[in-house]
Design a protein around this nucleic acid. Sequence first.
DNA 1: ATTACTGCCC
Length: 934
Amino acid sequence: MSLQRLFSLKNPLQPHFKLLKPTIFTKSIQALAIITENPQTTTKLNLTHDVEWAAGSISYSKLLSQCCKTKSLNPGQEIHTHLIKLGLDNDLKCRNHLINLYSKCRVFGGARKLLDESTEPDLVSWSALISGYVLNGLGEEALLGFTEMHAMGIRCNEFTFPSVLKACAMKKDIVGGKQIHGVVVVTGFESDAFVANTLVVVYAKCGEFLDSRRLFDQIPERNIVSWNALFSCYTQGDLFEQAIGLFQDMIGSGLRPDEFSLSTIINACTGLRDINQGRKIHGYLIKHGYSSDPFSCNALVDMYSKVGDFEDAKAVFDHIQNPDIVSWNAVIAGCVLHEYNDTALELMLKMRRSRIKPNMFTFSSVLKACSGLGFQGLGQQFHSILIKSDIELDPFLCCGLIDIYSKCGEMEDATRVYNMMPEKELIALNALLCGYSHNNNDIEALSLFAEEHSDGLGFNETTLLSILNSAAGLQDVNVGEQIHGLSLRTGFESDPFVINSLIDCYAKCGSVEKARKVFDESSIADLATFTSLISAYAQSGQGEEAIQLYLKLQDLELKPDPFICSSLLNTSASLSAYEQGKQIHVHTLKFGLLSDTFTANSLVNMYARCGSIDDATRAFSEVPEKGIVSWSAMIGGFAQHGYGKEALALFNDMLKDGIAPNNVTLVSVLCACNHAGLVTQAKQYFESMEDVFGIKPTQEHYACMIDILGRAGKLHEAMDLVNNMPFEANASVWGALLGAARTHKNVDLGQTAAQKLMLLDPEKSGTHVLLANIYASAGLWENVADVRRLMKDSKVKKEPGMSWLEVKDRVYTFIVGDRSHSMTKEIYKKLEELMELVGKEGYVPVLEIDLHNVQRSEKEVLLSFHSEKLAVAFGLIATPTRAPIRVKKNLRVCIDCHTFLKFVSKVVTREIIVRDINRFHHFRDGSCSCGDYW
DNA sequence: ATTACTGCCC
């Protein structure tokens, strides 16, 4: 128990009484005496516990000196109190010791009080005070003390100058440093080793390396500290090679490096990322008996963490006998760097068990670990510990906290931490902007940036990446252009990350041309840039450009990565480019990318959407770690191809595997029921969605369910469902109803649905066409004419029917009545041939009713030129005899083409796969996989 | 009695 505690006891009379109690006093003195290694004293103290004896037999000055050496504040204060009691507190020697002790222990008030109350404070009193300020990093206070001392007419000596100069170095105050340098020269302390070495440090720390080096060269008797000082300054100024060069010069001059030299050089190796040199130094350390030097060990832990293997870092750490706070921090930081985040937290617990208090470095690392592990709750607990502690919330910690709060979407708290910072720092701004962008607070991000930018906070590439993400999120090409301009003006336009973000931003804002321009103008041709532009093309549906770019990438012999391949597979999927997709598949195998689940899932999706359910099934069976995305892709694939039973069976397999479905899976499940005509099952799934799987039906699920009921002719039930939806029905719901009305020729329902659709999605052309068809089927020709007029007035154009067919490396496009193809003649000839063949088999053109006012013969001609017919005809000419023909169409297949293709598949014995806007049709041997229900 | 060179979080 310390005396301080005694003084705070309730009874004010007690302290004096307790003070005289020998047992309390002697415990401290005894410990001190043992430390002073005075065997005589120790023995005698062991014989007696008497206070007065201790005071008389050993000098207070000696004891206080020992207190200073060991920074033992409490015993020092006890002695101080005792000196007052004995009236010995005016002794200058003791007083200066006490000033030194208090100042070093940050009790500046006490130190200052002793100095002020001195009858004659001398140079030593001031030196002691100033050195304490410097030791505690208070450069400003040290210089103020120096000025005051100077004003009192007290001159510095070789002991004071180093402290004062160090204060200048700390503040990077070259002006003050030069002034004091002048005083040093005038007073003749220039050649003192301590002063000369510190002068070298002052210039170097202020960035004046040439002056520093000149002073170093002029030191008459350079010692090891001079060398150490200079190359440590070089290392701190990131001049690692110069540091190592100087180190070699030192060895050349015959000096043997000590632990200071070695730990500094290890840091230089870390900076240079030169692990070989670092290992050599490690060997030297062991050979020369420095392997237990704490500084060198800590430097090694840091080096292996940052440059080498974490295992090496851990091995060095495990060898440290009594790891200090820096050792722990270094190894914990290493864990975080290598993403052993849970180990980082475990080590922090171990560290606390060994009674070492975490500091701001520790918290900075463990906050990162929490963030990496998604332990936001723990991160918030650390925040409350930090608030209760006396640890200063420096910019690094603030960043960590902003990151934690951003990760859990608590942007208000993140903003609060940021606003709490006395001085805004760029790294904190970046952390907050990043948080805003991830939480889709794009407007907040951009306005915060604008504000801080006008306040002069500045920005770097990280800032630009964040705000470009926000601009992309807003899909505001103007904001993107402004940021582009800003990066051009500030020279960031050549940063690869900025370039990629610009491409990404322009692409997301819908301007692939601008994205391409950035790509073309940049001199960087790395994988990431290609990935950005390829996915930009993929996202905007420009698959051919995406592939062209991929070919260019291969010309440059860049090895594709999972991102690129995944992107390309998705492109092939959306284009139904089966051959192309297969080629990408080969590449994924060649480059070993199928262990990546994303890529493997994309492969399943690609084959499913390119119409090859067999390939998709095979790809699915080879997905290394099947997740919900893999299962959903496969179930969705089966559903789209009309394999309802297979889809549902797979869904059950998935449930057996313990994978919980998500809303995407359930859309596919309902879709499967729809395409397989399983109305009862669909109803069961739909009704149990929330109870069994905990998924609330969305618009999509409702739309699917209404489609099912509609197709089954249960129009009332479908309408009831629309009326009882928990939200306003959207366009897809009404679209499903309109489709049902058309199938079942229900004019009232068609009108209601079409009206809603025209309001919700006025640009959609299909609505008018469907409504016209419904009117036409009921013989309401005037209404048909009205709709046509309405369509003309509202400038809604009927989307022309288009089909795509892939042959070898090219995708061929066909439009209704297309005659632009180089093989037009052959195609139409083939079509005629086919007409004749299928006519013999019993094919009769089935007319779409909306063509009622066109002459019958004309209709037949028009029908025969539908794009899918042209595509199939070309496919028969241009592809190998037995290969399936895969066509993609932008609209629903018309009933005539559907009938025609059934016949064709029979007469030419070929499988024809048509992917229309809703699903796949596999025409084989005269029938279609959809069972004529689509 | 007072003095110089070394480590951990972006």
